[in-house]
């Protein structure tokens, strides 16, 4: 499905289902240099289990037009614009990594539009090393390789993809390689520059789910503790032996957590 947001065309994966105003809606927001397909299993399940699903390609990513958004706050406002463009009054927002920060900020800034948030692999602050930022700024492939390694638990770096026949490291790398030049840098800079996490968490009034990977090196569970302590109504699920790429490493566990929460 394609939606006009602020005059730019946005692609949303819907699980091949047409939106139904009578159903609750869920927006999926991906992380840096990714697209909607990282939520393939979870979004498809929910689309076929009573929800309107909009798994978006953020501007400047995947099939969506425009330039990448420069800040978490801009993405949060863009989510509200997406709901406007889709004719949806309220939705749950599921975000991964950068998308998790955007979901948090959206719930804070647009409490009348966001009814629940699920933060997958969240951290605050979501600091990015200078070396990684520098590499991303010049589109050095080493930045993608580093993210691919850091995003997967040690065991999964040798495989064991739950989807038969898929090679997890190759899939992660190849998806990031599809990013437009400069997109990773803008995304990482948005993560690194976000300072409103605790204030946003304090302002959130809707229920929040936090899904943490016990072996996440990109967003270690300890880096989510401030958010957990600050959010008023929260549920925390920690996935054992799981890295940052949790939708690929443990798709069923992520889906079960989402299905129980949403």
């Amino acid at each position: 499905m394609r939606v006009d947001v602020d005059g730019r065309e946005v692609y949303c994966y819907t699980g091949a289902r047409s939106p139904d105003p009578a159903r609750p809606s869920v927006v999926f927001v991906h992380g840096a240099a990714n697209d909607h397909s990282v939520f393939a299993l979870q979004s498809r399940y929910l689309a076929h289990h009573g929800r309107n699903v909009m798994a978006v390609d953020l501007p400047g990513h995947g099939r969506s037009a425009g330039a990448p958004l420069e800040s978490v706050e801009a993405i949060a406002d863009w989510i509200a614009g997406l709901l406007d463009g889709s004719g949806i009054a309220r939705a749950a927002v599921v975000g991964h990594s950068l998308g998790a920060l955007a979901a948090l900020e959206a719930a804070s800034r647009h409490p009348d539009r966001v009814e629940r948030i699920a933060l997958l692999g969240p951290a605050f602050p979501m600091a990015v090393s200078d070396a990684l930022l520098d590499a991303a700024r010049v589109d050095d492939h080493a930045a993608l390789e580093l993210i691919a390694v850091w995003s997967h638990s040690a065991g999964k770096q040798l495989g064991g993809h739950p989807v038969p026949g898929m090679w997890m490291m190759g899939s992660a790398l190849r998806l990031m390689e599809r990013s437009r030049p400069g997109a990773l840098y803008v995304d990482l800079r948005a993560c690194n520059g976000y300072t409103n996490g605790l204030a946003a968490a304090a302002a959130v009034r809707c229920p929040a789910l936090l899904v943490l990977g016990a072996r996440d090196l990109m967003a270690p569970p300890r880096a989510a503790q401030g958010l957990i302590a600050t959010l008023a109504e929260k549920r925390v699920v920690t996935l054992a032996d799981c890295g940052h790429a949790m939708m690929a490493e443990q798709p069923d566990a992520v889906l079960d957590a989402l299905a129980a929460f949403l």
Binding site: G159, G160, H161, V163, P164, G165, M166, W167, M169, G170, S171, R174
Partner: peptide, 15 residues
């Protein structure tokens, strides 16, 4: 599936 992953890994593919 193990074979498929292994060959994909050695070739540098996605699957």
């Amino acid at each position: 599936a193990v074979l498929e992953e292994r060959v994909a890994a050695l070739e540098g593919g996605v699957g």
